[in-house]
């Protein structure tokens, strides 16, 4: 009984070497090892039509639930067509009123923005993301607000302190996110609560309201 495969044969089985790369004295062992792994049954199993039916029935039921429909109605963007019939004097009057309101708003003293969040518009808020990642070559933040796009929101280093920051304008809502360090390593935000994504990893959470961000 052999004690185990030669390290070079193991490398071949791991796909790091080919049989031809083995020295001649190991070819026999290599061929035998390949026969072993080829003995594993790779034949497709018979598909059960019930699986697709079961899954789609549950998926349709989930999608049709009232809460889900309400969320989609609130969340999905939609096109609006607005038709107006106006008289010319109303256009000029409206424009003057708008100009007056704008002048009034601009004449008010500017509010000092909060270092973490400030209101960007009626429905979105500036949110500052900060990560201490000394030694990182690049850092980005990805989440449900940018469809987990790793390149959409890069952070910039604050000097040489190892602190990376960026500020994003996010619509009001709740989001899951994570930092991506050097393009591949996911890091949860140590300053935010996190939730299991259902598969053993942690997604950070932020709730954006018209008054700023809130810890969930």
């Amino acid at each position: 009984m052999m004690a185990g495969y030669h390290p070079l044969v193991k490398q071949m089985l791991d796909g790091e070497l080919s049989l031809a790369d083995l020295p001649p004295e190991l070819r026999g062992e290599g061929e035998e090892a390949l026969r072993l792994v080829q003995a594993a049954d790779r034949a497709p199993v018979a598909l059960s039509p019930a699986v697709e039916d079961r899954v789609m029935a549950l998926v349709r039921g989930h999608a049709a639930s009232p809460a889900r429909r309400a969320w989609r109605w609130l969340h999905a963007p939609r096109e609006l067509e607005l038709r107006l019939r106006v008289r010319p004097w109303a256009v000029w009057g409206g424009a003057l009123a708008a100009a007056a309101v704008l002048a009034l708003l601009l004449s008010r003293p500017a509010r000092t923005p909060n270092s973490e969040t400030r209101v960007a518009s009626r429905d979105s808020v500036f949110v500052r993301f900060v990560l201490y990642a000394p030694g990182a070559r690049r850092v980005a933040v990805a989440g449900t607000f940018n469809q987990w796009d790793r390149s959409a929101a890069p952070l910039v280093p604050a000097g040489t302190s190892g602190v990376w920051t960026t500020t994003l304008a996010l619509p009001v809502g709740q989001y899951q996110y994570g930092f991506v360090v050097d393009g591949e390593r996911w890091v949860a935000d140590p300053a935010a609560p996190a939730v299991d994504d259902g598969f053993g990893r942690r997604n950070s959470l932020v709730a954006v309201t018209a008054h700023g961000t809130h810890v969930l």
Binding site: S48, A50, V51, R54, V55, L58, V59, H62, A142, T144, Q147, W148, R150, Q176, G178, W186, D197, G198, F199, N203
Partner: peptide, 21 residues
Amino acid sequence: ADAVAEGLVRAYRHLASCRDP
């Protein structure tokens, strides 16, 4: 078949959490 069906339903419910489609 049970494990795959459960997994697929779970995947659908958590699809928004899929970081890298």
